[in-house]
Write a protein that binds this DNA or RNA. Sequence first.
DNA 1: CATAGCTCCTGTAGTCACTACAGGCTCAAG
DNA 2: CTTGAGCCTGTAGTGACTACAGGAGCTATG
Lengths: 137, 137
Amino acid sequence: MIEHVPVKGLQRSQLSKRTGCNIETIRYYENIGLMPEPPRSAKGYRLYDETHVRRLRFILRSRELGFGIDEIRGLLDLVDRKAQTCAEIQERTKPHLAEIRAKIADLRRIERLLARTLAQCSGEDVPECPVLEALAS
Amino acid sequence: MIEHVPVKGLQRSQLSKRTGCNIETIRYYENIGLMPEPPRSAKGYRLYDETHVRRLRFILRSRELGFGIDEIRGLLDLVDRKAQTCAEIQERTKPHLAEIRAKIADLRRIERLLARTLAQCSGEDVPECPVLEALAS
DNA sequence: CATAGCTCCTGTAGTCACTACAGGCTCAAG
DNA sequence: CTTGAGCCTGTAGTGACTACAGGAGCTATG
């Protein structure tokens, strides 16, 4: 009569399905200390609960918004300390927003250059291509 | 009377200075076959010339424009074959431009979301932060 | 009861585009 | 002759995963 009642808790694949996170990535986040080590079943299987689902969603959402692992570690520390204030969060988020804006500006510059060069390109079978010339210059 | 006249040609550090390319990166490009193996001096020092300068500039410019190593390999193949046509170049450049535009769209979405959330943030010492709530949701 | 096929466990290697380092040789200046 | 820079090589580290190898366990079917 040991463990006849199925141990409640989500296994790795269930957590993966619930969050859309790659199954290997979950273990990776555990290894680097973003996800806590979950309790284990008698046979050593990881057993997750709703707190893990929420934490993983937080991480994934932050990644989507372009935060790096270390930045997320910082945000999670604030959450865990429960001492976070709006001011602290702003302090971390504002430079991140600035970075994203810089990346956008960069890409737009590249896009303009590439589009302009392509527009000069006849698309015919001539051996002189303005794109290559732009790259070589 | 061996090699009294300095062997003409640029050494790695000179090529690095002329192109702005990190000195280690030059060897890396050689290892992966983007840069050709240059001739060597009697003692085995690499000796570059203007053709190497031009090729490296082409590579660096392409990287700046966001082309991956394999894409550059493709462009260089076209250049080397001397059989390139505008049509071939367009074929390779158009999808790349589309990728860049997709990345811009992505980043703009992220930027809007982050900016909107930050705008709701009072910056005061309250423990409920709309940014964290947005991340957790 | 046995076997098949799935999921789980672990550690490790591969990805991309570099960058850095260790250990040894060469070269020019002082 | 010594010092310090620059060259050579191979290898390891970066970030954020992703994939694989080798072994154990679970469940369903014959």
